[in-house]
Every structure is written in structure tokens, then in C-alpha cells.
């Protein structure tokens, strides 16, 4: 931000200076550019000074302290039924969330400090119970309820799995017992066996019935609990807020999943790209080595050929010397 301000200030000084105090004034195009720059910079700073200040504060002071959707959930749950529109801003250095809600067919606009839950502005009269709302308490409660809900769902899932596993086992056991009894007892004890089988069957049926009853009772209890909760929420006027919250949570999860998928794909792509690049580099290295080897071989062959030539030359010179020496000796002998 400081650099941004420095650059803007520099441009402004240049633009204004170029217009008023230098011979550039004569050149029309530069003058126009100067006026345009200075007007745009100064005008933006003047018109949006409050918003720029907010953004700076959001980046440097309050970043990461509270997310917009949590603040929205909080305000929607505590104050409103249907949020027609909402926005997040800083009012007098307070992170404020403003929503428009409908209560008893009357529209209402409330601006609340997102940290404390204190009402900054309200189009209708503020109720006494609304004055004591605090964000921290709500946030704690929310975290706790979320944890409990998570635990409950996991325990329900585990229980269901267990029941599913248990039921076929019980049937198998009964069958196995029946078979055993049949093999053990003789034909004379058929009646007894039948009685035992009947008894076992009845017991099994009773067990199943008991289980069914238990499941039904559990379901009824759960439904009743949910209904009572829903009624309670309806009474408090929070049902739609809850729906909105659930929708938001679902949307957030979907977004998260999509982001994860995108990240995974990007990682895969990067990995493939890296592999490809490594392969290309390896190929290039191989080719380079081959070329170097070829060059070395060629050089060696050349050196060998040269050495051979030199040896031949030396041999020829030696031969010539020997022939000359011979001739000299012949001449000398003839002279003597």
C-alpha cells in the first residue's frame, strides 16, 4: 500500500508539475495526460477514501479474524428470518455487517458489529433482548453444537453399520442351531425337535420384533426431537436462517471439494509436466553425450591418422637418409 501511495504521489506531482510549472505545458498531449492522471488519482482518493481505508484495514488489521459467512450466519440467526441482502464493511473502524430482513411483514435494516454483535444501526426499534447479544458466546455455542452434531452423526453411522452386520449373523446362527439339532436328535424325537424349532423360531421372531420395535422407537424419538427442535426454532423465527445456514454450509463444502479436486488435478498435471521435462532433459543429455563420444572418436581417429602419417614420413626420411649415407659411402669408396 505504501508503494502504491508513493507511486500515486509521484505521478500526481509529475502531472501537476508538468502542467503548471514546466515548458511541457505547450505540448497539448502531455497536458491532457497530466490532467487525466491527476484527476483520476485525486478523484479516486477523494471519492473512495473511506472504502480504500476499509480495504487497508481489512488487509492489515482484521484479516483472518472473522470470516464474512460466519458473521452473516450470526446476524441472520440472531436478528433475521430472511436476509434479502447483506454486505460487509467497516463503519467507524468497526467490521460491520448490514442485512435487510423482514419481521412481521415489516422490512428492517440492521447493521451489526461483526465482532461484538452490538447493533450499530437499526431501522426499527431495538428490542431489549437484542442488546445483550454477543458474538463470542454465539461463536462458542456454534462450535460446540457443530462438534456434538458431528459426533452424533458418526455414532449413528457406526451403530447402523453394526446392526447391519449383526442381523445376518443372528439368522445364520439360528439356522446353524436348527441344523445341529436336526442331526443330533433322532426321528423319534421329531415332535420335541419341532417344539424346539418352533421355540427357536418364536424366539428369533421375538428378537426381530424387539429389534424392529427398538428401531421404530428410536426413529420416533429422533423424529419427535427434531420436530420439537423445529418447532422451537420456528417459534424463535430461526428456521429459514437455519436453512440458509445449511445451504451455505453445503455450498461451502461443495466449493471445498471442487477446490481439492482442482488442486489434485493441478498437482497431477504439474507432476506429469515435471516428468516430461525430466525425460526431455535426460534425452538431451544422452544426445549430448553421444555427440561428445562421436566427436572424441573422430578426434582420436584423426590423431591416429596424423601419427601414422608422421610415422610414414619419418620412415621415408630415414630411408632417404640411409640411401644418401649409402651413396656418400659409395662415392667416398670410389674416391679412395
Amino acid at each position: 500500500m505504501n508503494t502504491f501511495l508513493l507511486v500515486t504521489g509521484g505521478v500526481l506531482i509529475f502531472a501537476i508539475g508538468s502542467y503548471f510549472f514546466s515548458p511541457i505545458r505547450e505540448k497539448k498531449v502531455l497536458t491532457h495526460i497530466g490532467i487525466l492522471f491527476s484527476t483520476l488519482c485525486l478523484g479516486t482518493l477523494l471519492i473512495f477514501s473511506h472504502m480504500i481505508g476499509n480495504r487497508v484495514l481489512a488487509n492489515y488489521e482484521f484479516d483472518g479474524k472473522i470470516e464474512k459467512y460466519i458473521a452473516e450466519d450470526f446476524v441472520a440467526e440472531k436478528f433475521g428470518v430472511i436476509s434479502l441482502y447483506s454486505w460487509y464493511e467497516f463503519r467507524n473502524l468497526q467490521p460491520a455487517i448490514t442485512i435487510k430482513v423482514q419481521e412481521n411483514y415489516k422490512k428492517r435494516e440492521i447493521t451489526v458489529n461483526a465482532f461484538t454483535g452490538k447493533i450499530i444501526k437499526s431501522s426499527l426499534a431495538v428490542l431489549p433482548e437484542e442488546k445483550n447479544i454477543t458474538f463470542t458466546a454465539w461463536n462458542k455455542e456454534r462450535a460446540q453444537t457443530e462438534k456434538i452434531a458431528e459426533k452424533e452423526t458418526t455414532s449413528i453411522v457406526i451403530e447402523q453399520q453394526r446392526e447391519e452386520e449383526r442381523q445376518p449373523l443372528e439368522f445364520e446362527q439360528i439356522e446353524f442351531e436348527q441344523n445341529q439339532e436336526e442331526t443330533k436328535e433322532s426321528a423319534e424325537e421329531e415332535e420335541k425337535q419341532k417344539r424346539i424349532a418352533d421355540q427357536a423360531e418364536a424366539e428369533a421372531l421375538e428378537k426381530i420384533k424387539n429389534m424392529e420395535k427398538k428401531i421404530a422407537a428410536d426413529a420416533a424419538r429422533k423424529q419427535k426431537k427434531e420436530e420439537s427442535e423445529r418447532e422451537e426454532k420456528k417459534r424463535l423465527g430461526l428456521l429459514t436462517a437455519e436453512n440458509v445456514k445449511n445451504q451455505r454450509i453445503a455450498a461451502r463444502e461443495q466449493k471445498k471439494q471442487a477446490e481439492q479436486e482442482a488442486a489434485r488435478l493441478a498437482e497431477l498435471q504439474a507432476e506429469q509436466e515435471q516428468k516430461r521435462l525430466a525425460q526431455i532433459a535426460a534425452d538431451q543429455e544422452k544426445e549430448r553425450q553421444k555427440a561428445a563420444e562421436k566427436a572424441a572418436q573422430e578426434q582420436q581417429a584423426k590423431a591416429e591418422a596424423k601419427a601414422k602419417k608422421q610415422a610414414e614420413l619419418l620412415a621415408q626420411q630415414k630411408k632417404a637418409q640411409q640411401a644418401a649415407a649409402k651413396r656418400a659411402a659409395q662415392i667416398r669408396s670410389r674416391a679412395s
Binding site: 471519492i47 473512495f48 472504502m51 480504500i52 454486505w87
Partner: peptide, 11 residues
């Protein structure tokens, strides 16, 4: 500027 600071529509 409204596309960068849409919350400033009131002012």
C-alpha cells in the same frame, strides 16, 4: 470504481 468498491453505492 463501483466494480472495485461496490459497497460504496450509497455515497
Amino acid at each position: 470504481g463501483i466494480f472495485i468498491f461496490p459497497e460504496s453505492f450509497r455515497s
